[in-house]
């Protein structure tokens, strides 16, 4: 099977700081890959590069057979195929939940208002937000806002969805409802890439877990292997710290 995503030697600097260092990975269609690692290890930057919100300094990223990082490639059609959900939700505060979800449908895909709203209503209802269509983001809990953000990203029916620490800004009791949504997505054919601190969840949902250190993949493998029998010393140290802080259940 051909790869859905292929990153080759991706390098990214912020000033003199090398955030991604010759990072390479291939992801199969429908695969669920989690990126774990300390803060600053490059997880978020990696996802933002795949969505073309950041430009890379070296290397290449392919989506199917298209090199999306080549100079001159229009980012907008790529972004329709690769959605992203942010840690801080980033909902549009001046729009209702429904309008947040239909905006890209009407403006980017050119759907009619009715068409877009029917798509959005179905998606929002699927995520338990049927009674929130007309609410504004400020009036929702963090968990509800993040579910809206996921619905908004899914409205364009992307082939790849990037989830950037989507539960990190949530109160602990709200994490579950958001993770349930992600569980539901697995197996729907969509390719999922997660940057996460939820080790238990990464272990449960991932087909593959990658441990990032210093902007590169230090170790990757089946979740049981990474969490049960890590080989790289840095992975071992990282997981030991996580276990000590009680984050691995």
């Amino acid at each position: 099977m051909t790869d859905k995503l292929r990153l080759a030697n991706v390098t990214k600097h912020f000033g003199t700081n090398r955030v991604l260092d010759q990072l390479s990975i291939s992801v199969a269609p429908g695969e669920v890959v989690s990126f774990i690692g300390a803060s600053g290890s490059g997880k978020t930057t990696l996802l933002r590069c795949i969505n073309l919100l950041e430009t890379i300094d070296d290397g290449s990223i392919h989506l199917d057979d298209l090199e999306i990082t080549r100079v001159g490639v229009d980012a907008n059609p790529i972004r329709r195929r690769v959605g992203i959900v942010f840690q801080s939700f980033n909902l549009f505060p001046h729009m209702s939940v429904l309008r947040n979800t239909t905006l890209a449908l009407t403006e980017v895909l050119g759907n009619s208002r009715e068409e877009a709203e029917s798509t959005a209503r179905t998606l929002l209802a699927r995520f338990g937000l049927a009674d929130k269509f007309d609410s504004y983001p400020d009036r929702l809990s963090g968990g509800q806002q993040q579910r809206v953000a996921i619905a908004r990203a899914l409205a364009l029916n992307p082939e790849v969805l990037l989830l950037d620490e989507i539960t990190s800004a949530l109160d602990p009791e709200l994490v579950g409802e958001v993770l349930d949504v992600v569980r539901e997505l697995k197996g729907s054919g969509i390719t999922l890439l997660l940057a996460t601190h939820e080790m238990g969840f990464a272990r449960e949902i991932s087909d593959r877990v990658c441990f990032l250190a210093n902007g590169t993949i230090a170790e990757s493998g089946h979740p049981e292997q990474i969490f049960g029998d890590p080989q790289d010393q840095r992975t071992q140290q990282f997981l030991a710290r996580v276990i000590n802080s009680g984050r691995l259940n």
Binding site: G83, F92, A104, L156
Partner: peptide
């Protein structure tokens, strides 16, 4: 982050 969210949805 508002621009990032909009651009990530494919808006010009």
């Amino acid at each position: 982050s508002q621009r990032a969210a909009a651009r990530s949805l494919g808006l010009s």
